[in-house]
């Protein structure tokens, strides 16, 4: 079973995303912020990470930079999933190593297609 880590400080978003991902047969884990996510991937590296941008404690961007610089031999796919919707943010995310970008709000078709695009769908 493919695995996805949802990193978002909003409980509602995590719930919505989890529901969609589970119907797509992903095993889902959740983290509330970047620091929490860094700890979780030490225990188990998911196939894909759905990553919010603005979060308390550690932002999505900081988490992503940490992840991409880490010595983990297998790197997960990262799909940013955020309300930031301008080209500047999108570009910065891609440059930092994001594989895809979703602007909230999203629906099942968006998420499913983005997961296929990064090759885990």
């Amino acid at each position: 079973m493919r695995t996805c880590l949802i990193v978002d400080d909003s409980k509602v978003i995590r719930k919505v995303a989890r529901r969609i991902l589970e119907t797509l047969e992903f095993a889902v884990e959740e983290a509330e912020d970047g620091r929490d996510a860094l700890q979780r991937i030490e225990l188990r590296m998911p196939d894909v990470i759905l990553l919010d941008w603005n979060m308390p404690v550690m932002s999505g961007m900081e988490f992503l930079r940490n992840l991409r610089q880490s010595p983990h031999s297998v790197q997960p796919k990262v799909v940013f999933c955020t309300t930031e919707n301008d080209i500047g943010h999108i570009r910065a995310a891609l440059e930092a190593g994001a594989d895809e970008y979703v602007m909230k709000p999203f629906d099942r078709e968006t998420l499913e297609s983005k997961l296929q695009i990064v090759g885990v769908g």
């Binding site: 919707n85 979703v102 297609s113």
Partner: peptide, 24 residues
């Protein structure tokens, strides 16, 4: 709309072939 443009479309193609008008 923002919602429509990303449904099914890879972000790189969106950046390459679309121009943002206003924020949405």
């Amino acid at each position: 709309s923002q919602f429509e443009v990303q449904r099914g479309l890879p972000v790189l193609q969106m950046m390459r072939w679309f121009e943002q008008e206003g924020s949405q």
